[in-house]
Simulated scan of single mutants.
Amino acid sequence: MANTEHQQYGPTDIKGSVLDLIGNTPLLALDRIWPGPGRILAKCEFLNPAGSIKDRSAYSMLKYAKEEGRLKPGAPIIEVTSGNQGCGIAFVGAVMGHPVTLTMSAGNSPQRAEMMVGFGARCDRVPQVEGKPGNVTLADVDAATAAAQKIIDSTPDIFYVNQFNNPNNCRAHEEATGPEIYRQTGGRIDAYVATLGTAGSFVGTSRYLKRQNPAIKCVVVEPAGAEVIAGKEVTKPLHLLQGSGYGKVPELFDYEVMDEAMNVTDEEAVEYKKLLGSKEGLYLGYTSGANVAAAVKLLKSGKLPPDAWVVTLLNDTGLKYSELHK
């Protein structure tokens, strides 16, 4: 046996669990897609443990539910998901010691269901009502919600996360994502641009940024034809931005922190998804493409100073999607 009595060791950096890997994602300059004038800075949320920004809200919602006594030790958890939030809840629940059930429309990508099951969760894929694979509508989400409600009604002590109505969803981004962005830019940020599903990341991040500097322009990105935040009639419920643009203003949305709403077409989202791969070496999802497309449109619009810095989100990895567009 080696004699370690007088051996000197250096400092260590060991994480206690995968939960310690959530957040503090890098801010990346997309100078190859947009060489200027101005700059697009993108938060690399695909580097979270389950591959999306929803890992932040999953941990926040479960952590505070446990602290507040609403989530009992070892109690089952259920949530309705389009995929990313479900993946986050599945791995956070696993580490916290809770069995997890997710209900998800069959129109959402099967890769997400596979990931949830890999974390030990149960994933019930609910038949679509009016959508098709890759295109999920509000009616499809309602069907998944109804399936979850049946389980809730028959399962004592089950905790329903309820991401669309849970204020701790926004809290995750007000406490972490917003402060990280402000710190990483040194406070130099002219605009924040993001798609929204539950509205948690947009509202929470915008609230923090607006408190630091009310002049920061916070812009919602909506799928063209499903622009309810902008007050327009839904003409295209079947769009490619899974987890976004459900044709209903989310309960968590706060118009007070929004300066403008922009739209992005499916074609623009696909174009910038491909450009993220071919120019920046990033294989990401469709809402990431939409975010970058919107950031480019905003910089081209003349609404910002020529040297403006625009921050957006790279929401999730492209590995969670079926490749519908080769």
Rank of each mutant, 00 (worst) to 15 (best):
G318W: 11
Y255W: 09
D20Q: 09
V257S: 08
V203S: 08
T185W: 05
K66C: 01
P133A: 09
Y192S: 01
P35H: 04
D259S: 01
L313N: 12
A143T: 12
P11R: 13
R39E: 15
L209R: 02
H239M: 07
K232V: 05
E233A: 15
L102A: 03
G36M: 12
I40A: 04
T185Q: 06
I89S: 06
L19S: 02
K66V: 01
G86W: 03
E271N: 10
V257G: 07
K150D: 15
K326D: 06
D259C: 03
Y64E: 08
V141L: 14
A144Q: 08
T155S: 10
K15T: 15
P156R: 04
A29R: 14
N162V: 12
I189Y: 05
K210W: 05
Q212R: 06
S301H: 02
T195G: 09
N168Y: 15
E79P: 03
E79Y: 02
N84W: 02
P35V: 04
G93I: 01
Q111L: 11
E79I: 03
K132G: 10
G178R: 15
V117T: 06
P11M: 13
A2M: 12
E256W: 05
I33A: 07
A94G: 02
A295L: 04
T198Q: 10
P76Y: 09
A50V: 02
R39D: 15
E175L: 15
P99K: 02
